[in-house]
């Protein structure tokens, strides 16, 4: 008998508490936003549309190493590496991402050794035609450094390019003189 009365009182309390909570939330600030009229705030490291960035000197960061392509679990990145004749820098001759296949996992960004490929907090890329989701290099390349402002691969790589011969890179000695036996 006592047990039954306790159950009824507990049930009653639970109902009242729920009603109280609902009443409280009626006056609380709303979490849902009126998308698309109202835009949600996104974290800077949100994984959305992929871009190709440039180094601080304004040159393409991508050196066409194919690591993003091989890391991609859906194989939606393809490119062709080439070497620029005027200065010996590597660059992608074409760079294509098929966003209709991309799952925005960010593995490409993790794999990229030059901080070239980066995911941005932009996800609004819907298209009526799937073909329009195939992005070429001109669609991907931005004119900024993205998340990594100071990095320039060619300053640390040790690869001679025009205007930056051997020994001119960070933490490098001048080229050795092979005709000398001095220590």
């Amino acid at each position: 008998m006592l047990r039954k009365m306790f159950d009824v009182l507990e049930g009653l309390y639970s109902h009242l508490r729920s009603m109280g909570l609902v009443l409280k939330h009626t006056f609380a600030k709303r979490v849902t936003v009126q998308y698309p009229e109202e835009k949600p705030p996104l974290a800077p490291r949100w994984r959305g549309r992929i871009v190709l960035t440039r180094d601080p000197d304004g040159e393409e960061r991508c050196v066409g190493c194919y690591l993003c392509a091989v890391a991609c679990p859906v194989d939606c990145i393809s490119l062709q590496a080439a070497e620029r004749e005027e200065d010996g820098r590597r660059y992608p001759e074409f760079f294509r991402i098929n966003f209709s296949r991309c799952i925005f996992c960010g593995y490409c960004e993790e794999a990229c050794p030059t901080y070239a490929i980066q995911l941005t907090p932009d996800f609004e890329m819907c298209e009526y035609n799937r073909q329009n989701l195939v992005y070429e290099k001109q669609d991907l390349l931005i004119s900024g450094v993205g998340k990594y402002p100071g990095y320039n691969f060619y300053n640390v790589a040790g690869l001679a390019t025009k205007g930056k011969p051997k020994g001119q890179h960070e933490n490098e000695d001048a080229p050795v003189d092979v005709r000398s036996l001095l220590p």
Binding site: D75, I77, S78, N98, S100, Q131, V134
Partner: peptide, 16 residues
């Protein structure tokens, strides 16, 4: 088994 670009290499011609 690590062949890359399967879904992108011909996507400029036809996405399917």
């Amino acid at each position: 088994h690590r062949y890359s670009g399967r879904t992108a290499m011909k996507a400029n011609v036809a996405v399917s």
